[in-house]
Amino acid sequence: MATVIVEVMPKPEILDPQGKAVAGALPRLGFTSFASVRQGKRFELEVEGEVTEEVLEQARTAAAEVLSNPVIEDVVSVHVQESA
């Protein structure tokens, strides 16, 4: 069994209100080392059998057309994670 990992982030030029709220909370809890936070999404697409180039291509298409909205988000990574 393998998993295709898709990572989606808000576009850099778009203010990320959730990340900003997290960034505001961190120093209040004593975590003072971080200048800013951006919050994104990670999808784990489990594959039965082998991850062929065709499967990866499907994952890339799904990432672009469904898992992200190109108006506000970028797909930053589509990669395979082999499970133990």
Partner: peptide, 17 residues
Amino acid sequence: LCESHLLAGAMVKNEHL
């Protein structure tokens, strides 16, 4: 309608959350 591409743009969380 925005997600369907019938209208332009997108909606994200309110600025003040």
